[in-house]
Design a protein around this nucleic acid. Structure first.
Lengths: 195, 195
DNA sequence: GCGTACATGCCAAACGTTTGTTATGTACGG
DNA sequence: CCGTACATAACAAACGTTTGGCATGTACGC
């Protein structure tokens, strides 16, 4: 059929990273086809060659974002349970410049997602997946007595709420909330949960 | 100077509410001069008569937003301390359709605020004011033994993080987080803090 | 092997629309 | 009349998208 002259998927990823770069710097309000093309050093024609339109550009960029956040290369996977939960929370927080850039995009996406039905649904799904991940760690922790019994679903909601709320504050006041302080707040929070 | 034919300030407020209405429906990405004028039932010429440009329109609308959130007409001011803290948290949450609309704007503003230095500074200040309000309630609660001693500033950060994180989740999944469930999560959270 | 046929990768330019802003015109109370 | 309060209309710039074309590669009958 079509032995590709260039690797299609890898090119799509290049484009997505250019989108990413523009978003981190100018937010969704500054995301334009021309800006992405400039960041990529190409023409807007290239973009439409790999993506149907601006809409798909955004959607694909957000998909990549979720995966990267979950698979952030942090210290080796800890023991399941409370330690794993802690690692999951730290993986989300903007503890490094790179993580801060990703979170800026993540937070910025909420405006578009709240106004676009498709992106809204995708974002809701993403949240559910994240909560599911937290929940299994919570249930592991409960099984070994690291956390008191209780509705693990509600607890996952609480943990995610705290984490994302901390993300927002850290983005708007990075000097008051450096990495060490964020970690401290997470540990205090988890200590309160263990009663 | 000018015995005004119309009340200048009241007209500015009318404009701001039109801005508000557009933001709640289409987000910051859909905020245009013409959309605001249409929502107001006027021309764009009116807008420029009261505001220098789009920038000032946004800034003023966000100022109003903060004031309204803080002064939301909820049940009469409770006793200072833990009860007051609880009320402050409930005042923020999207427990009513009106509050949900305000939160949609609030959350949406983060994208622009993160990319615009002026709005960024204004937003940071707003957060500090909110935390200060929470902090006095926390210290009151600590004084009467409703909360264990500890850094009230860090605790305020934790409370605000949880609250705003809950706002985001509630906006993206209103069916899973109706008003009653949100209130329940707040009470569970506060119970955990009281150890 | 080779030349035709065709698909792919990409650019440059142009399309029509929408944007924020500004200039001009009109109505009218003081 | 003069200045305020708007509407109307125009403006250049920027927007997302479409188009035509030029390469450059593979596929295949011969």
């Amino acid at each position: 059929m079509s032995p590709a002259r260039t690797d299609h998927d890898s090119r799509r990823q290049d484009v997505s990273e250019a989108v990413w770069q523009v978003l981190a710097e100018h937010g969704f309000g500054g995301l334009t086809m021309r800006a992405v093309a400039a960041a990529l050093g190409s023409s807007t024609g290239l973009l439409t060659h790999y993506f149907a339109g601006k809409r798909e550009l955004i959607a694909h960029a957000l998909d990549i974002l979720e995966v990267r956040t979950a698979q952030r290369p942090r210290q080796a996977a800890p023991a399941p349970g409370l330690a794993a939960l802690r690692t999951q929370m730290l993986n989300i927080l903007p503890l490094t410049p790179d993580a801060a850039a990703m979170n800026r995009i993540w937070v910025g996406s909420w405006d578009v997602a709240l106004s676009d039905p498709d992106l809204f649904a995708a974002q809701s799904l993403r949240y559910e997946r994240i909560r599911a991940g937290l929940r299994t760690s919570i249930e592991d922790a409960q099984r070994v007595g690291e956390l008191p019994d209780g509705d693990s679903g509600r607890l996952a909601t609480t943990v995610l709420a705290f984490t994302h709320g901390l993300v927002v504050q850290a983005l708007f006041d990075p000097e008051r909330l450096p990495a060490a302080t964020q970690t401290r707040l997470v540990d205090d929070f988890l200590a309160a949960l263990t009663r």
